[in-house]
Each structure stands twice: as C-alpha cells, then as structure tokens.
Write a protein that binds this DNA or RNA. Structure first.
Lengths: 207, 207
DNA sequence: GTAGCTATTATTCAAGCGTATAATAATACG
DNA sequence: CGTATTATTATACGCTTGAATAATAGCTAC
C-alpha cells in the first residue's frame, strides 16, 4: 500500500504543466502517442488527474493547440520600433529559434492534420491565421507608407498574402531540414526576397 | 453462418485500393482514426486482409506516404515546353486542384507530424523534398539562361529555396482556407511574386 | 490541533486497437 | 472435372485506450 507522495499545485499552474506535457508528447510521439497516461507521466502526475482539470482529453488537446498558436504568433506580434525595423524583426523572428524548430512544426502539423476532422480545431486555426496575416498587413501598410510607396488596402493585402506565404514556406523548409541550410541562410534569403517583392530595401546589408 | 461473398482482385490492384483507403481514412479521421478496421471498411474488405498484403499496418502507412508524395510531385515534375512555359505551369499546377486541396494538406500534415517520430517517414520526406527542390532548381537554371540572366549554381540555389518556400507557403494558405481568396488570386499573386523575385516577366498578363 | 475541502492517487471498466489463426470460397491448372 | 493454391473471411487474443469511481493525503480556516 505504498501510495506515492505528492504536492498540491496552485490552481492554473498544474493546468499549464499538463498542457505543456501534452505538447511534449505530441511532438515526440505524435497525436497517436500522446495518450492520457503518457502525458500524465510527463507531467509527473497520475492519469486520473487529467479529468480533474479538463472535461475530456479532447478539450485538453484543443487548449494545447491554442497554446501552440500563441507561441508561434506572440513573439512576432509584438515587434517594436520604426516600420522598417519591425518588418525586419518580424521576418527574422519567424525564421529563427524558438519559432523555427522541429518541435514547433511537429505540433503545427499535428494540429493542421486535424483541421478537417475537428471543427473546433478548424476554428482555432482560422482565427489564428487571420490574426497573423492581418498584423502583417498592417505592418506592411506602415512600412510602404513610410517609404512613400502606394499602400492602398488591395496592394497591402496581396503583399501580405505573398510575404506570409514566403515566410511560412521558408519556416517549413527550415524546421524540417534545417541542416540543409547554412547558418542564417534562410533569413538572408527571406530578407532579399522581401526586398525584391516590395521593390525597396529593408535595411539589410548585402554580402 | 452467412459468409459474405467476395471476388479476388488482381495482385497489385488490391494493394492500391488498400493504400487509397488508408489515405481516405487519414484525411477524414486523422492518423488516429485510420484504424485497420476503418480502412478495411473503406476498401470494402475485412480487416484481416490487410496483413495478407502488408507486413504490418505501419508498413502500409509508410507506403501510403510514398503515394502522397508522388501525387504531390509527379504532376509538377513533368511540365513541358520552353523554360518560361514550364516555370509558369509549375507554379500553376502546385496552386490549383488537385494538388492544392484540403485533402492533400491533411495528408501532408499528418505525415509531417510523424517525421520526428518515425525515421522511415523522415527519410521518405527528405528524399521527396530534395527531389522537388532540385527539379525546381534545374527549371530555374534553364529559365534564367534563356533570359540571359546569371544562372550560376549558387544563384539558382537561392532562388529555388525562395520560390519553393513561396509556392509551398501559398499552397498551405490555399489548402487551409481557400475560401478566403478569390478565384485564381493565389496563382496571380504567385506569378507576380516570382516575376519580382527573378526580376523578369514570365509571360503573364497583368490585369 | 482538528474538521472540512478538494487535489491527487489507485483501481476498475468497457471499448477499440493491431495482430494471429483457422475456416472457406474463388480461381488456376492438370 | 477434380484438385491444389491462395485470396478472403471470420473469430479470437492480449493489450492499450479514455473515462468513471472510490480511497486518501495535503492544505486551509477556525
């Protein structure tokens, strides 16, 4: 009858630990391997506790997805400084760690693969995507205006779609096969590509 | 004792049906929901038959992944005509159906999410990615040479990385939220973006 | 301190999983 | 036409899953 000792965690903290453990398991073992038991082990508790904090495993996973999106977007959303600096930082942040790493894309892909299956996840995704693209669009509007270039809504929309695609695509490439690129190569390619797209320098120094 | 009637399928055909059923289930129910039983139902056979054609479920899934990559790359790999036409077709093919649809990205994402988990899938992915990017790189080399632009290996490599990223990123955007874009908008944005990147027209007509 | 609350553990359950095996029906071949 | 072959079905097995329940241990308030 050796019942294991334990300590009571403050409300909220344990929830956070469980969500983090969920993400760890999904990235390491896949959605299939992220079982309630495995997650509990990772969080250092027993399986039953999950249902004390969440209505179901599915609900916990959905909240974990929200956390992923937040971690992928929050850093880039709070860039500061003049428009040019903000644009440069936006690109660099999305293509370097911790945003660009294999854990991130594992999590992202795991959830994307469920978008068709689970309408809840689908809605969470769409919300996150639009927020991200809109913040990029505003950033571009400021930047183009500062450069004295046409910055009407339609132009900014097209640029935002293109640059969002470019950055996302390079992010995927880098996350999945970072070893195929030289140090800083992806960021450099992104910078010069954005300059070519916008027809302006963004303050990067050509080698 | 009503044993269900059945017909014997020609060798290879049944394998193909099972792989197709596997992909259907993964895209509709996720990797988790793609159980042997569900796959068998989709294929119109009983579960036991899977093990008659494949050593294990995992092996069947790996072969299914090969099929996905093939379907995503084969159309774009056999573009024909002069370099300019081939480049244009390459872009258009990747951003319109059937390559760009929600089923494709569900499958792609499901496998990407397993790349860290399963070394077999990881190797299959890397192989497919490099093949795809190299064919794009050759395409660009031909195109730039035809346009009388510098086409050294390093330049082509950087362009291939950037354009591959751009196309992949737009592909993801379109697959996940096609309804957010106007008809043909993504292709148009891709075309004009590639023109800006390469500093050349590629024969598209500006609206 | 100690009574009460609840966070946490321990245990149990039915359902579903991948796989193994044996029975059977469709085909191929002499 | 009969027989061997094997693709297919049917059934069973051991294991894992998410969830429900009961027991218990740590904290808080008085």
């Amino acid at each position: 009858m050796n019942r294991r000792s334990f300590h009571r965690a403050p409300e909220g903290e344990r929830r956070q630990e469980l969500i983090e453990a969920t993400l760890d398991c999904i990235s390491e073992f896949g959605l299939k391997g992220a079982t309630v038991r495995q997650i509990a082990i990772r969080a250092g508790v027993t399986a039953g506790l999950v249902r004390h904090y969440f209505e179901s495993k599915d609900q916990m996973v959905a909240e974990a997805y929200r956390a992923v999106i937040a971690s992928l977007t929050e850093k880039a959303s709070k860039v500061e400084g003049d428009p040019e600096t903000r644009l440069r930082d936006f690109i660099a942040i999305n293509l370097t760690e911790p945003v660009a790493d294999s854990r991130s894309i594992s999590l992202w892909a795991a959830f994307i693969s469920q978008v068709r299956v689970d309408p809840v996840l689908s809605e969470i995704h769409r919300e996150g995507y639009l927020t991200f693209r809109n913040s990029l669009q505003e950033l571009l509007a400021d930047f183009l205006a500062a450069k004295g270039k046409p910055a009407d809504a339609e132009t900014c929309r097209a640029f935002a779609i293109a640059i969002n695609g470019l950055v996302d695509g390079l992010w995927v490439e880098g996350c999945l096969a970072g070893d195929l690129f030289r140090e800083g190569e992806l960021v450099a390619i992104a910078m010069s590509s954005v300059e070519a797209l916008l027809g302006t320098t963004i303050g990067t120094v050509k080698q």
